[in-house]
Nucleic acid binder design. Structure first.
Length: 153
DNA sequence: GCCAACGTTGGC
DNA sequence: GCCAACGTTGGC
């Protein structure tokens, strides 16, 4: 069991959007960065828990948690010319991009902003802090516990 | 909207 | 097989 942090632009897909999914789960698709793709395809597993992070918005922050309910499968959007995530170089026999399904677990009592994470000594080695632009990244057990505790109040 | 970090692509 | 150009991401 591994912990992860997934980033999403709330204008595109927010924690609240995931909570509102009629089917109870949402597809984490549209990942078009190779480092993120590799984590998603090779390491993210069924049952793994996820910190849901809102990026590219007024206050970038971890806002809640989710859980992986289906491991990696080819992202259908790459083959659909109508889709904004269509990739003309992707061929069905050799998919280039992957997605997973997640379900909503919790919304924090208060968001934990990036600025606060950067100021918290226990979190100074987070990938989030060390390497800014990575939308799927591993989180250690102690980082998970620290963030969840900060979000409790 | 600028631009920095990272990985991939492709010309030579 | 080098390395410059390019695409994606995302804080500021």
């Amino acid at each position: 069991m591994t912990y992860w942090l997934f980033k999403s632009e709330p204008d595109e897909y927010s924690l609240q959007d995931l909570a509102a999914e009629a089917t109870g789960c949402g597809r984490w698709d549209g990942i078009r960065n190779y480092q993120a793709r590799n984590f998603l395809r090779d390491q993210v597993s069924l049952g793994d828990e996820v910190l849901f992070y809102h990026s590219a918005c007024k206050v970038p922050a971890v806002v809640g948690t989710a859980k992986v309910v289906r491991a990696a499968y080819p992202d259908p959007a790459q083959f659909d010319p109508e889709n904004k995530y269509f990739d003309p170089k992707a061929i069905p026999d050799e998919p280039r991009w992957y997605c997973v399904d997640v379900t909503w677990c919790s919304e924090f009592a208060r968001p934990v902003p990036l600025a606060e994470i950067k100021k918290t000594p226990e979190l100074k080695n987070m990938v989030l802090v060390k390497q800014g632009r990575l939308s799927i990244q591993p989180v250690t057990d102690s980082e998970w516990e620290t963030i969840v505790r900060l979000g409790e109040r």
